[in-house]
Design a protein around this nucleic acid. Structure first.
Length: 304
DNA sequence: AAACACTTCAACCGCCTAACT
DNA sequence: TAGTTAGGCGGTTGAAGTGTT
């Protein structure tokens, strides 16, 4: 029978009438005994289906509608901490069901992180060179052309762009260094994970990325002190960022990244320190707090 | 206006665990 | 102690909605 399984239980979307029956039953008898709910209420549904419908849609405290930026950030932070523990994450978001959090993550937040150059699985910097460059280009475009009305989003993009570019630059530096030692041997070229012509591709990537940074030397500020006058409105504000950028001498960030004194990136990633440390590659990843990524062997393992 | 592509999200599936017999 | 069952969780699917060509 269409819409039913082999046991005769109905499947598929719930009708308003079924919803009404379920709500009515739960209100009178309470929830928890889903087997009895399914049988006693006269619903031709499985106990699982009843529970799911109630917890994800019908319970009175459920919050429908768009998810706020604050909620999104909470999900991202908790996912970094807990992984795919959707019910646990949802328990920190009043009125949100685990299914909704799960859907939100897989349809929007995951791709958001990927575009920011963050691996959504490890919550660390992505190790795929093509997605790194693609994400940087998208990020730069977004920062340069984003709507100034959305100040918080713009600031987040700016700070993330600065941090991610610094990370990416060094990431490429280390990868190129390791590749250089392996790809220089023609006998091993065919065994390279990126296939034949690795040296050329690496050189091109390096060149493209340097060009990308150089092309940003003409400042194109999207925000000024007028549009961002209140540091309380700015998440992750740090007072040292602008000064540090100006003091940076070895490899300056593009000037457009420089935030106005009140508009600064999150302090947990010291962008300037990372950029300055590029002259000393062995310490940069350590500064990011991930010692495993600091050594050449880490990248050698990935590449091999 | 129609066809197609893409996105969103409700619901199902399979597995795991705890409680009960 | 072993077997059974219900509830819970995360992964996956597919229908519906929306956007694009």
């Amino acid at each position: 029978m269409k819409g039913s399984d082999e046991t005769g239980l109905k499947k598929g979307l719930w009708t308003p009438e079924e919803d009404r029956i379920l709500v009515d039953y739960v209100q009178r008898h309470g929830h928890g005994k889903w087997k009895s709910v399914a049988t006693s209420a006269g619903l031709n549904r499985s106990s699982k289906s009843c529970r799911l419908r109630w917890t994800n849609y019908l319970r009175p405290d459920i919050k429908r509608g768009s998810v706020s930026g604050e909620e999104e950030q909470t999900i991202i932070d908790l996912h970094a901490l807990l992984g795919n523990k959707w019910s646990t994450i949802a328990s920190h978001l009043p009125g949100r069901a685990d299914n909704e959090v799960k859907n939100l993550w897989s349809t929007r937040l995951k791709w958001k992180l990927i575009q920011m150059g963050i691996d959504p699985v490890t919550d660390g910097p992505t190790t795929d060179v093509h997605s790194i460059l693609a994400s940087q280009l998208q990020l730069l475009a977004a920062v340069n052309f984003c709507n100034p009305i959305d100040i918080n989003s713009a600031l987040m993009l700016q700070s993330n762009a600065a941090a991610t570019i610094a990370k990416t630059l060094h990431l490429l530096h280390n990868m190129i260094e390791v590749m250089g030692t392996t790809a220089s041997n023609p006998a091993t070229v065919e065994n390279q994970p990126f296939g034949y012509g690795l040296g050329h591709e690496v050189t091109e990537l390096q060149s493209n990325f340097i060009d990308l940074v150089a092309s940003q030397h003409q400042p194109k500020p999207i925000l000024d002190s007028k549009t961002c006058s209140n540091s309380n409105d700015v998440p992750f504000a740090s007072s040292s960022f602008a000064a540090n950028v100006q003091n940076s001498t070895t490899l300056q960030l593009p000037t457009w990244i420089t935030a106005s004194p009140e508009c600064r990136p999150r302090p947990d990633i010291n962008v300037v320190q990372n950029v300055n440390n590029i002259s000393n590659p062995s310490t940069t990843f350590e500064a990011w707090g991930d010692e495993a990524t600091a050594s050449d062997s880490y990248w050698r393992d990935i590449i091999e």
